[in-house]
Design a protein around this nucleic acid. Structure first.
Lengths: 223, 223
DNA sequence: GCAAAAACAGGTATAAATACTTACATTCAA
DNA sequence: TTGAATGTAAGTATTTATACCTGTTTTTGC
C-alpha cells in the first residue's frame, strides 16, 4: 500500500465540509476518495457492502447516531487494517489521549491547513501513524507514569459508561432526583457519580460539566 | 452585478472548511473567491484594504475575536451593499430570527449540499436574498403579531448585553457570588438576571443555560 | 483467583440555585 | 412624554448541588 493510491473514506455529518475536503483530496494524484458517510452507522454498513476497503478513514468525532469514539472502537475490532485519522473542532487533552488510546493513528484539529491534512494522510500511509507536536505533548503528559494510580486515573478524565450516561442526563437539564428515578438508582449514587465527574473533568460545577460534555462530544448539540 | 462574476469572501475560523468551500466555489464559472478571513476582525480590516469589494460574504457564526453576529452588524453599517449569507452548524429558532433581523440575506446550515450553497449564492446575487423553507417558517413564527408584547419578548429569547455578560460568566463556572463581585453588583441582581435568562431561554437550570449559550454561539468552546 | 475499577449507597454539612414576589431608577424609542 | 425595556435590589422559602466522609457489592482484567 506504499506506492499505490491511498484509498480514503470521509465521515462527517456536515455535507459541505465533507464535499469540500473531498475536492481538496481529489486534487492529489495519489489519493482517492472511495466514498463518504454522514455518521458511524452509515460508514460501517458501507464498509460491509464495499468490496474494496479504504486504507484510511478520516472521521469527525461529533456525529449523530454513532459518534466518532464508538465508531473508532467498532472499526478497530472488525477492520483492524483500516487506519483512522480523527478530525475534530476542539482539542481537549483528555479527548486527544482518549482517541489515541482507542486506536486513532493521527489527530487533527479542523483548524488546520489542507497541506497538513494531505501531509498527515501521506505520513499515515507510509508509517502507519502521524502525531504532530501538540498531540505528542499530550501523549507525553498522559503516558508519564505516576506515583498514585488512583489519583492519576481520577485526573486522567476518562469516564465510565455510567458516568457518561449520567453526564448526558445532566446536560438534558435533569436533576439528581430525576436521574436517580430514571436509572433506578439511589439519589446518593447519582450524587457520587456526579462528584466523580466533577473530579475527573476538573470542573467546579454543573456548568463546567456541560461545557466539558459538549467539548468532548459526549453531549450532542443537535436538537 | 447581475451577469457579472459574483465576488465572494469566506469567513470561517476553520481553515479546512474555508479551503474546502473555496475549491467548491471556484469550480463555478460565475463565482470568484476574492479572499478568506478567519474571523470578523480580519474580514473587516481586509475589506478596508481591498479595492474591490465582494458582493457576498459567506460567514460562519461561531468565530473567535469577533463573532458572526457582531461582524454582521458592522458590515451592515459600513458596507451596506455587501450581502451576508449566514452559515452555521446549528439552527436554533431564535438565532435564525436574530440573524435575519440583523440583516443576513440568507441562512444556511452547514449540513447542506454544495448545490444548495451555489444555488443560494446565485439567488442572492440575483434577487438580493434567499430564504429556504425552514428559514421562512422560522420567520413566520416570529413575525406573527402577538397579543402580549412582554410575554412575546420574553419568549423570543433575545438577551440583553448584561444578560449575555452574565451568561458567559456562568459558562465559565462562576457562582452567583463571584459574578456579583466581578461586576460590582448585588448577588440578588445577578440572581434576577439569571432568572430572566432561565425564562428567556426556556431552561430549567444552569445546564440548560450553558447548552443554550453554546448553541447560540454566545459562549465559545475554544479553550 | 486476586486486585483494581466501577457501581452502588448512606451520613452530615454547607453552599448555591431556583421559585415566587415586589420595587425603583434609567435609558431609549415611538 | 409616555411606555417599554433594562438594570438594579431585596424578601422569603424550598430545592439542588457541592464537599467532605464512609462503606459494600459487582464487574473486569490479568
Amino acid at each position: 500500500m506504499n506506492d499505490d493510491v491511498i484509498k480514503i473514506v470521509l465521515v462527517d455529518d456536515e455535507v459541505l465540509f465533507r464535499k469540500g475536503i473531498s475536492f481538496l483530496l481529489e486534487k492529489e494524484e495519489n489519493i482517492e476518495v472511495l466514498f463518504e458517510a454522514s455518521n458511524g452507522e452509515e460508514l460501517i454498513s458501507n464498509l460491509n457492502n464495499h468490496e474494496t476497503k479504504p486504507d484510511i478513514v478520516i472521521m469527525d468525532l461529533k456525529m449523530p447516531v454513532l459518534n466518532g469514539v464508538e465508531t473508532t472502537k467498532v472499526i478497530r475490532k472488525f477492520f483492524p487494517d483500516i487506519k483512522i485519522i480523527a478530525l475534530t473542532s476542539y482539542d481537549t487533552k483528555s479527548f486527544v489521549a482518549n482517541m489515541i488510546q482507542i486506536g486513532a493513528v493521527a489527530y487533527l484539529v479542523k483548524n488546520t491547513t489542507p497541506k497538513d491534512l494531505v501531509n498527515t494522510i501521506n505520513e499515515v500511509a507510509k508509517k502507519g501513524f502521524f502525531y504532530n507536536e501538540t498531540t505528542l505533548k499530550t501523549i507525553q503528559d498522559y503516558v508519564l507514569p505516576s506515583k498514585n494510580s488512583r489519583v492519576n486515573n481520577l485526573e486522567s478524565g476518562f469516564l465510565s459508561p455510567r458516568e457518561i450516561e449520567i453526564l448526558q442526563l445532566i446536560c438534558n437539564q435533569k436533576t439528581t432526583a430525576e436521574i436517580a428515578e430514571e436509572l433506578f438508582l439511589s439519589p446518593r449514587t447519582v450524587e457520587g457519580h456526579r462528584n466523580n465527574l466533577l473530579l475527573k473533568t476538573e470542573s467546579r460545577n454543573i456548568a463546567g460539566l456541560v461545557v466539558y460534555a459538549i467539548q468532548n462530544e459526549i453531549a450532542l448539540l443537535t436538537l
